[in-house]
Design a protein around this nucleic acid. Structure first.
Lengths: 206, 206
DNA sequence: CTTGACTTTCACCTTTTGTTCACCTATGCT
DNA sequence: AGCATAGGTGAACAAAAGGTGAAAGTCAAG
């Protein structure tokens, strides 16, 4: 989503252009950009624009089209790719993740997204029943190697992946299922590998 | 969202045309545009219109079609209806729905949609806890007046809206919470008004 | 078939604005 | 050193944008 890396100079130019459009509803002319940046030659502006285009910050425009500078962000807005995350497999307390060969993209509302990489897993079994996570639910996980106490995590112990509440006490971590029928397990912190933190849940009723 | 980049002049013309259609329900003639923009030649208008078309702000029209100017924005508006549903309020077993003045649109994955009208409600309380529906969850409801046994429904009884499992037995319906601490209730079918059937659930972890 | 209401087009002019050419400096990379 | 890239100066140039006026088409309704 974010604009390709730009030099500070390019960034200033870009922000002026974007801001100008925001205020005036139309694009600035090269002359206006030149004045604002305190340049003396229009060619400087032309070069700046060319670079912003090459770096994908500004949309291409027909040759010689006046006042047609447009941030790609604005143009692209209408064809915004839907927010999707890969569905990587199944997870169940006490069972290894059953990885899917071809991760299928799953559409999720942007409200459930945020910084960081996400993936989805399909829940099997009732190990987290008491936390309102049921068999068949789709969970959204933020890829992470660390977790805070009380968070629900995807953790791998001895090759087995599970979805559990995470609690760290000194050098051991407790992985606690939310199901009275299942036992809590404690491990040396070194044997527990955190793969992600639960950030969302999608359920579909028949 | 955004309209193609236009020059200030073009923008004025465009806005006049769009505004005129808004008010009068039909497109202005070139003459009317000419007067409004204070021009002396109709050719100026013709050129303006040609540019607006070239820049994609006005839709093409058959040759010589009278008063047929039309912003593409209006056409394109229906392009990709973002999959959103209105968030209508809060629901809790035993409490009336707390309606929201301005229903806010909530984005949902299309996988949770389907035929029929949908809306969203924010869950308050733990009445459906054992069904994996928790305080704070966002539920997706398909507007409906009938339900099948076993479905979870939004039902109104004596002005109180609740989220419960629906079971019909002859002339009475049972509304069953999924919480052992709460009692099931039975009513004559005529007093129970179904407002919708639960079709999805979105949860966000802090 | 004519007429009124419109849209298109022709010829020609001015202003605004984007593009390009030639040439210069600094910095980083191989 | 040798070369590519970012940044810059200045001037000449060409095309788009914006206009004028009048004439020629188009089309539906009287």
């Amino acid at each position: 989503m974010s604009i390709p890396m730009l030099t500070p100079r390019q960034l200033r130019a870009y922000e002026f252009i974007a801001g100008f459009i925001e205020r005036e509803k139309y694009a600035p002319s090269y002359e206006e950009i030149r004045r604002h940046l305190g340049l003396r030659s229009l060619n400087s502006v032309a070069k700046l624009v060319a670079q912003l285009r090459r770096r994908g910050a500004l949309a291409d425009a027909p040759f010689n089209a006046k006042r047609s500078l447009a941030p790609v962000a604005l143009r692209g807005a209408r064809q915004r790719p839907r927010a999707t995350v890969p569905l990587l497999g199944l997870i169940a307390a006490g069972q290894p993740i059953e990885a899917i060969e071809n991760p299928e993209p799953v559409e999720v509302p942007e409200s459930l997204l945020g910084p960081g990489q996400r993936y989805a897993l399909r829940v099997r079994g009732d190990s987290m029943m008491e936390d309102g996570i049921q068999d068949g639910d789709l969970i959204l996980v933020r890829r992470a190697a660390q977790a805070e106490n009380g968070q629900t995590v995807v953790a791998v112990v001895d090759g087995e992946a599970t979805l559990k509440r995470f609690h760290r006490r000194g050098a051991t971590v407790e992985l606690r299922p939310a199901n009275a029928a299942l036992r809590s397990a404690e491990w040396p912190a070194s044997r527990v590998e955190i793969r992600g933190v639960l950030v969302g849940l999608l359920r579909r009723y028949a």
